[in-house]
Amino acid sequence: MFQINKDEKLIEKAMGGSQRSWVNLVKRYEGLVYNYCLRMTFNSSDAMDLMQEVFLATYRNLPSYRGQNQFKGWMMRIAANKTTDFLRSRSRNPLHRAGEVTDESYKIPEHQISQSMHQDPAEDYKEKQKNKQIKKLLDKLPDEQKMVVELKFFQHFTFDEISHQTGTSINTVKTRLYAALNKLKGYSEIQNVM
């Protein structure tokens, strides 16, 4: 409750022109949004672009924020909109081919490799491998199904909230989730065998 009240205060000050309040508000949510973007776009430079678009749109839309301690949900609605636009325009871009996304976020940075005394890089790599696996699995889904899985399982929103955020009916949301689960069954089985 205290945390949520803090949001409202920061928003009020940010709208009054306080840059510091805006930065504080962004810092509270950028991790959440960035990781969401990573799962939705699969690669880190796209995630960064999308995240910035989300915060820009959030900032511009602040005057239409109605309060009632719903900032996260309200912002995630903007995020869902921006993500849909982003993925749509990316799929039209001939330079982006599905399944051939870059893995640059999984490379261990040069300066870490060059350290003579270092932690077990394999350990670090294995952690990142898990994310890679998750993103690969999510990437099997059409964008709108991926969105529902993200909002349901990673963001823990209710069907009602997801319906509001994606601008679709509750039934459509449920149908998409069911279709997604069905589609993933096949891949999980393959993965488990391997």
Binding site: A14, V23, K27, S44, Q52, F55, K130, N131, L184
Partner: peptide, 23 residues
């Protein structure tokens, strides 16, 4: 499986970026 996966996600820190250039 998805539920477990969501907990296995290793949260990534946001690279440094300019939070106010547009604001």
């Amino acid at each position: 499986e998805l539920y477990q996966m969501s907990h296995e996600w290793q949260s990534q820190t946001v690279p440094e970026w300019h939070r106010t250039s547009y604001a």
